[in-house]
Amino acid sequence: MQTFDRFLSFSCFSQAHRQFILLCTGILSSFLLSSLLLKYLTEFCPLPRNVIQYYTPTQKSCRGDRHVVFMKVPKSGSTTLQNIFFRFGLSRDVKFMLPKRDNWLSKSRIIDRDDIFPNHAGQPFDILCNHIRYNRSDMLRFTHNDTSRIAIIREPGSHLRSYLYYYHLAYLNLQQSPETDIVRKFLKHPEKHATKILSNPVSEWLSILPTANDTADSMKGFKDRLFQLDKDFKLILIMERMDESLVLMKRLLCWNLEDIIYIPRNVNHLYPRGHLNAADKIRHERISRFDYVLYAHFSAKLDSIIDHSGEDFQDEVRFFKKILQSVKEFCANWRRKVGTSLRIDPSPWSQGFTVSSMSCLLLTYSELEIQNYVGLWQYGDIWETIHTHS
């Protein structure tokens, strides 16, 4: 009954859907009902789709996914995730798609071959993790058919605050002072500022905003593209639940705990933290309602998958947090520890591994530093000759 109640709780079931399911309970056996619900859920409410593809921690027969597209959504913890994908690829000798200029593969949604370093003999790239907006059909031209798509998103109010404090305030005609919260100042009169770049920025990045063809019902068109995005991606992580998200990603991709250790990158410690108050959240939802729907959808999906991930899932998350603390302490003064290493013992969830001073160097590299390291590793002198910064 608990499982049945969980099925009914999914927000995508309308009242008519619930009545239909309840009607079925009176005329179908429990076996047939379970089969019908599974089919109904996967067709009309695709939230826990990835549960079916889940790998248990002790499953040794699975082969780790080496082909990944990571959508680097700005100001969502994405630089930390990019560092993970770069380090994973370095340890597996994969081929990265890298830009010839700065850290953008493209400022549009189309990848121009003249803007990227070529792969050997025109072969597909294994990992793509630089800035670019999502375009499924265009990315298929450059990646493997079995590529796993991953992204990370952030609570919209927190994302707005990070955006405003990170980018030039003068450009937004906002002035910072001890007496003024620039987020509140922006939300009181968003029309006076650069509202377009701060209106549903994540939905825009993932290419699911309504189009001119959706004028009759823009929310319906948005949700149609949202469900397609759900099908396209193996997992969309939630920044506020980074460690749970990463352990889940590790299980879905059949990786090791070593592959997902991290030290947060590109974090602005100067701006004040905190959530929007009720009034400001209402104001923000008026200009970014699609981002709020997007976040609620994938936050609920994360909950759903974790609920199906076994009794030991939270045990693994706690173990992972302990590893992260040990790595953080070891790497805090890694230059004084050259020649030493941190040994992580085997566990029920992963094989043992070693964190060296070189590991710490890569973990603490900035975005451009690790991209440059990967570029030199993959292309040698050609990287230094061709790659430029604006």
Rank of each mutant, 00 (worst) to 15 (best):
R273N: 01
H159K: 09
I132K: 00
R161G: 05
K192Q: 13
A121I: 12
L235C: 03
V317T: 10
K234M: 12
K196W: 15
A151R: 04
V267T: 12
R101H: 13
R18D: 10
L160S: 02
A332E: 13
Q371V: 10
D112P: 04
L368T: 15
C45R: 09
K223H: 15
R136D: 15
S304Q: 12
D280W: 06
T25V: 08
E329C: 10
D138E: 07
D5N: 14
Y365Q: 09
D291G: 05
D217M: 06
Y163E: 15
K223S: 13
H120D: 13
D345I: 06
V293Y: 04
K328M: 12
W334T: 07
Y165P: 09
S347M: 05
M249W: 04
D315V: 15
R336H: 09
D138S: 02
L33Q: 02
Q123I: 11
Y271R: 11
H387F: 03
L246Q: 05
F96L: 04
L174E: 11
N135S: 14
W334A: 07
M249V: 07
L105G: 02
Y262V: 00
F44V: 10
L235R: 07
H387G: 06
R318T: 15
F86I: 12
N277Y: 08
R273G: 00
R18W: 02
R6L: 14
F70Y: 06
E244D: 13
T180D: 11
L324C: 04
N268T: 05
L38N: 11
L257R: 07
P210L: 04
E329R: 14
L226M: 01
T80K: 01
F10S: 05
I84R: 01
I282C: 10
K75T: 09
A332V: 08
G339E: 00
F4D: 01
L257F: 09
Q314E: 15
M249R: 04
R113V: 13
K220Y: 13
I238S: 03
S177C: 08
T388K: 13
H275G: 03
P264C: 05
S14C: 09
R92V: 14
F117I: 11
H308K: 10
M242T: 00
